[in-house]
């Protein structure tokens, strides 16, 4: 589903954000990207939705070579990827329902279809009762749920989340991760970049650890603290059997 082959990314200012990263995330997988700030987690996610293009190597997302994608086709790629950020990125002058519907408006979906899909997306994140609330009337956790609903309303096969719990208290963070897990169980591939040790440890999912723009560890059912230890538990990213087992669990 998502494949990085020997990917490097150097920003115009000379910063080497990624250094020959190879990583495969299978369809339906739930994967944490962990590591200190500035190790390339966000850069890796940006390559998925073509916010950045690699300076070397190949990024394949849902059978599409992202780097080779013509600029005019980038919106079509983004419609197949839901993106969630730490700062929610909601339009403050629109209600929760309007924010979710906005993702459908911009792709010109018929109104009837929009009215069918928006309540379903809000129901998924348990916010039907807050459909008419504006972002500043919602808590941080609720705002993040709206942003997840917006990311999912288009039924994308992939969801990437960049520090989705960074602005939330522990309870709200756990709720968000549970929600992402629920979405993953329904079949969506979920990739989460995070600093949140507690969540990573409690979830015990695949953990890819990054340092200095490189993948330094990649383990199944790992914890944040021990993700770069215990090499005997390492499971290669191309072992789909175990992952499928996890998903259906």
């Amino acid at each position: 589903m998502i494949e990085f082959v020997d990917v490097s990314l150097q920003y115009p200012n000379g910063t080497q954000a990624l250094d020959r990263v190879s990583l495969t995330i299978q369809k339906g997988e739930f994967c944490f990207l962990v590591g200190p700030s500035g190790t390339g987690k966000s850069s890796l996610l940006k390559l998925v939705y073509r916010e950045e293009t690699p300076t070397g190597g190949q990024v394949v997302v849902a059978d599409t070579d992202v780097a080779a994608l013509p600029r005019r086709h980038v919106p079509l790629l983004r419609r197949r990827i839901g993106v969630v950020f730490q700062d929610f990125r909601l339009l403050t002058k629109k209600t929760a329902a309007e924010n979710v519907g906005y993702a459908l408006d911009v792709i010109g979906l018929p109104r009837r279809e929009k009215h069918r899909r928006v309540p379903k997306a809000l129901e998924l994140v348990d916010l039907v009762h807050k459909a008419d609330a504006y972002p500043d009337e919602l808590s941080g956790g609720e705002q993040q749920r709206v942003s997840i609903a917006r990311a999912l309303v288009n039924n994308p096969p992939i969801l990437v989340a960049d520090e989705p719990t960074g602005n939330l208290d522990p309870d709200a963070s756990w709720n968000i991760i549970q929600l992402l897990s629920k979405i993953n169980i329904k079949g969506t591939t979920v990739v989460v970049a995070t600093h949140d040790r507690d969540i990573v440890n409690r979830m015990a999912r695949r953990v890819v650890t990054m340092a200095d723009g490189r993948v330094v560890a990649d383990r199944q059912k790992a914890s944040y603290d021990h993700s770069d230890e215990e090499p005997e538990e390492q499971v290669g990213p191309s072992d789909p059997v175990l992952r499928r087992g996890e998903v259906s669990r």
Partner: peptide, 16 residues
């Protein structure tokens, strides 16, 4: 610019 960023994120075309 924030609004434009969100539009790009959810897959709006340049023309849109």
């Amino acid at each position: 610019r924030r609004e434009i960023g969100i539009m790009q994120l959810v897959g709006a075309t340049t023309r849109f």
